[in-house]
Write a protein that binds this DNA or RNA. Structure first.
Length: 206
DNA sequence: CGTATTTGACCAGCGC
DNA sequence: GCGCTGGTCAAATACG
């Protein structure tokens, strides 16, 4: 059932929303800059869903046409994965392995907020304004496409993302963010805000 | 030569 | 307890 996704929030619980809301065509990948968690979600506000909004190919930012916040943070990825990818909720536990795991063993597991969306794109890794370093790749069960693991390159930032292709439709890229950036996006030369500020007027920098 | 990516190994969690 | 799986590490390799 590809037309139905779910959002879950600690306050609001589980509620449905059409997953095609988060399908972006390749040429609007630029809008991903506005969708990364730290930019999209005011941390104090209760998430709301505007089920009437849909992304359009040339629409820079659907969020600006709505007076609500389209996205909610929370355990989105495991819900969507469960409904769309057929992955068990239990498969989405946080994994910290090796020495670090031993060191952290006595600590309580802190589940980072997650944020997931799918994009129809030939490109696996879309530009979201942050710099990522790949640290792993894994072939997951029942898929012919490997899942890639990325970490934010900022030293103090623990945000991770996973990128994989939908088993049922390899044209779709599933991107899952875990955690929230504690810094501004790392912009390259041509995207520098001071050089070209108007380019970012529609984005939700917080 | 410094940085990023690749990839096999390792580890923890889970189900049986 | 054992095997399977996903997530991460880190050495080797590639790249600019």
């Amino acid at each position: 059932m590809l037309n139905q996704g779910f959002l879950e929030d600690h306050e609001m619980g589980l509620f449905p929303f059409p997953s095609n809301m988060i399908s972006l065509p390749l040429d609007s990948a630029q809008t991903l800059k506005s969708l990364s968690p730290s930019n999209s979600f005011p941390q104090h506000s209760k998430p709301q869903v505007d089920c009437t909004s849909h992304f359009q190919a040339s629409q820079l930012l659907p969020l600006q046409t709505s007076n609500t916040n389209l996205w909610a943070w929370g355990e989105v990825s495991e819900i969507i994965s469960n409904k769309i990818l057929g992955v068990s909720r239990d498969d989405h536990h946080l994994g910290v392995s090796g020495i670090k795991m031993k060191k952290l063993k006595s600590r309580r597991k802190v589940r980072e907020p997650r944020f997931c969306f799918k994009t129809m794109s030939d490109i696996d890794v879309l530009d979201d304004g942050y710099r990522w370093r790949k640290y792993g790749q894994k072939v997951v069960k029942n898929t012919q496409h490997p899942r890639s693991y990325y970490r934010c390159t900022q030293d103090t930032c623990r945000v991770k993302k996973r990128v994989e292709r939908l088993a049922e439709d390899p044209r779709m890229v599933i991107t899952t963010y875990e955690g929230r950036h504690a810094h501004s996006p790392s912009l390259n030369e041509e995207d520098n805000l001071e050089v070209n500020p108007s380019k970012f007027d529609n984005f939700f920098w917080l």
